[in-house]
Design a protein around this nucleic acid. Structure first.
Length: 553
RNA sequence: GGGCUUGUGGCUUAGCCAGGACAUAGCGCCGGGCUUCUAACCCGGAUGUCGGGGGUUCAAAUCCCCCCAGGCCCGCCA
């Protein structure tokens, strides 16, 4: 609805003014949509913008076809206000249980996210990647795309070789702990051993060569260590409602010959250099640094496998999206440049800045991090206390289930609400806050809507809204599909977080001032319809954010 | 040193890419609201040189240039 209306107004302004570059702004308190085209024309025509605006408005009114929008001229501004028929059409759409879901499209999209090295548990920095990626994936599904999520498993790099060496030589035994915690212990110990005895490095180099050559015994050792860690990582992700459709093992691209074929292709390119190491000269693309693919000992580096991986993805998907930390900006740009030179499809990369601790940046190797498991556990504990305080009458297992949903909501929302390009400092106090601008705040608005609908029973929807709170809420509901579109077009999941918070704000204000169950007749039917539409929208938004839409809390 | 990026009330943050009408909200602070659909709520108040300086424009938080401060990158690591 919103998008249709937007497009219709733009088209009419285009035909009146003869300009292509017509855009509408959010009118804020003044209007639902507004145009400042009169300023632009004033300059060209050397006339007063106020006069021009008035003339355009007259023409708009003359060719007025529907009554879904009214036009108002305020000085040089053209203001558009959505009318009652627009609101009715919006609410009729939003009464559909799957409001916001768009028809299936043919386009195949792959979102690769998390892809953390399997050398330890996910920490609070990694899950920024997971939550951005998962929210993006859910948004694409909501928008009707055929979507697959992938975790690219680095099972062949130096860090894993260090783990394998540690497993084989340090005699650490797995205790009562998750696989990822065990691997981290080994990894940290192995790094310590290397510091005291740098000679170990040559053993690790040897392991890397043997795994790349396909030595069955070494390959098995790598697989076992990685699998051990990955099982723990999967469990952590699941606790945050994140799951991957597919795990792609980096070593597969070495073994199936893709890496060799990719390198052969690159060798034939004019930008390829071989001076003992093999590298791509991207200086003509503005990159000073060598993009190295092969070491002098003949083994490939990450970049070579990454190119092969993306060539493969590009052939199986129409759009590929990678969620990567800001530290990958340079190599991400080099990857894209190289793929383009090869004539292959390039990925779109969503970069996010780092999460650090108050005492500095996190490090798996130094064991300096807040693990995602620890975060979940603490937040669940706090949420349980809250639920028990508020709803002591509920059964314990019900309270536990609510606490878990609330905790996931708090964590996911906290992370997704901040623009990815901002670096953040992890803060326990904020993580444990369930008040406004939090996931639970939105969950709570949804639960309130559910409660009203449960008490009301069946009703026949009506669409007569008059209170400003009703109208503001209905208008915001109408924007939901446009927001989903914007998220997948611009790869900005935090827009959904902002939208949903505003939706909850408007619903809560409505809830406070506009009685529903106590109203009567058509007023009651209209308000119930609005509550139902708001409930559906809140639910759709929460689910897209990966947060449980609780009926009670 | 070069590149990328961030800088918005005491703290956190939206808006910036596609410049317009009084800069968005939360926390904290002050004050008010539960005999009324779940108070994880709502309302009112105080708090801003939109890092600093220049420029472009009828109009700049938004675009351009310089400077300052923080983060990240610049490896035959991933």
């Amino acid at each position: 609805m919103y998008q249709d209306e937007y497009r219709r107004i733009v088209q009419r302004l285009q035909s009146i003014t003869g300009r292509e570059d017509v855009e509408l702004t959010d009118g804020g308190a003044h209007a639902d949509l507004a145009s400042t085209i009169a300023f632009t024309l004033a300059k060209e025509q050397r006339r007063q913008p106020v006069q021009i605006a008035r003339e355009i408005a007259e023409q708009l009114q003359a060719q007025e076809e529907g009554d879904s929008v009214t036009i108002e001229v305020v000085g040089p501004y053209l203001n558009f206000h959505f009318s009652a028929s627009y609101l009715e059409a919006t609410l009729r759409e939003a009464l559909q249980p799957d409001y916001g879901s768009q028809p299936l499209r043919d386009e195949r999209v792959v979102v690769e996210h998390t892809s953390a090295n399997p050398n330890g548990p996910l920490h609070v920095g990694h899950i920024r990647n997971s939550i951005l990626g998962d929210t993006l994936a859910r948004s694409f599904r909501k928008a009707g795309y055929r979507l697959e999520t992938q975790y690219y498993v680095n099972d062949i790099g130096r860090q894993i070789a260090i783990v394998v060496w540690g497993v084989g030589n340090l005699g650490e035994i797995k205790k009562e702990e998750k696989g990822d915690a065990f691997i981290a212990r080994v990894y940290i110990a192995a790094n310590r051993a290397i510091e005291t005895d740098p000679g170990i490095t040559s053993h690790i180099d040897r392991l890397m060569q043997r795994v790349e050559q396909g030595d069955p015994q070494v390959v098995r050792q790598f697989r076992e260590a990685v699998t051990e860690c990955l099982e723990g990582i999967k469990a952590t992700l699941l606790s945050l409602h994140v799951r991957h459709d597919r795990f792609i093992w980096e070593s597969d691209f070495v073994r199936n010959g893709d890496v060799t074929r990719t390198i052969d292709r690159i060798r034939r390119m004019p930008q390829c250099r071989d001076d003992g190491t093999l590298w791509v000269d991207l200086s003509s693309q503005g990159f000073e640094k060598q993009y190295i693919l092969k070491r002098s000992d003949g083994t490939t580096v990450y970049a070579a496998r990454d190119i092969a991986f993306h060539v493969w993805k590009g052939r199986n998907f129409d759009r590929m999206i990678d969620v990567l930390g800001a530290d990958h900006k340079l190599i991400g740009a080099q990857l894209i440049a190289t793929l383009k030179l090869m004539g292959e499809k390039a990925p779109e990369i969503l970069h996010f800045e780092f999460v650090s601790l108050p005492e500095g940046s996190m490090s798996t190797r130094a064991g300096k991090f807040v693990s995602a498991d620890e975060l979940v556990e603490e937040v669940v504990k706090q949420a349980y206390v809250e639920v028990t305080t508020r709803r002591p009458e509920l059964e314990e297992d019900v309270r536990r289930a609510i606490a878990r949903s609330v905790a996931v909501g708090a964590i996911r929302y906290d992370i997704v609400k901040v623009s990815p390009e901002k670096s953040t400092v992890f803060d326990w106090k904020e993580a444990l806050d369930f008040e406004r601008q939090s996931g639970p705040y939105i969950q709570y608005a949804h639960a309130r809507a559910c409660s009203i609908l449960e008490k009301s029973g069946e009703f026949t929807p009506a669409f007569q809204l008059s209170d400003p709170h009703e109208i503001a809420l209905a208008k915001h509901i109408g924007r939901f599909p446009a927001i989903i579109d914007q998220v997948v077009e611009e790869l900005r999941p935090h827009l959904l977080a902002t939208y949903t918070r505003d939706l909850a704000d408007l619903f809560n204000a409505f809830y406070r001032y506009v009685p529903v169950l106590k109203s009567e007749g058509i007023v009651r039917q209209s308000r119930l319809a609005l509550v139902c539409a708001a409930r559906n929208t809140l639910r759709g938004a929460l689910e897209t954010l990966g947060i449980d839409a609780l009926a009670t809390m």
